[in-house]
Design a protein around this nucleic acid. Sequence first.
DNA 1: GCCAACGTTGGC
DNA 2: GCCAACGTTGGC
Length: 166
Amino acid sequence: MSMVCAYPILEQPPMHHWLIKSEPDVFSIHALARAKGRTTSWEGVRNYQARNFLRAMQRGDRCLFYHSNAAPPGVAGVVEVVREAYPDPTAWDRKSPYHDPKAGPDNPIWSMVNVKLVEIFAAEIPLDTLRGVKSLAGMELLRRGSRLSVQPVTAAQFATILKLAS
DNA sequence: GCCAACGTTGGC
DNA sequence: GCCAACGTTGGC
């Protein structure tokens, strides 16, 4: 007799999708592949809007890993949120490039999540390619002057980019 | 290296 | 609360 789940899981929180940027010279998706557990803390976000998006992330959410300041810039793969937002201790580390004199253990100000590698695309999808895809026209990434390093992506945009990568 | 666009700071 | 000055981001 096979076990049938009588109560299919219908109450999962809605899955959200995101895009997170990293300069590959600082931390690339390949560095993530070499990291312990293929997992890293996503420290160093120092913009309030980006921080608030970090805080909205839920375990299991998927993020596009974007290489900024690269030649060419583009989406390099996918990661998954494995730990939800918690204080970013680099903010009160005087030796950290992300040091913020206003922050301290009693006033963390900044948050980070942990992400785990899901997939490195066989070929990065260059920014230029994304600009040519009509259905992605509304992406925050493509907006003129956009600099947000953590940004939401719609499920449709996410699916479109996965398809481009396949 | 350039520079446009943006966010933050701080004088007023 | 305004806004000029400044520092940063990130494409090119």
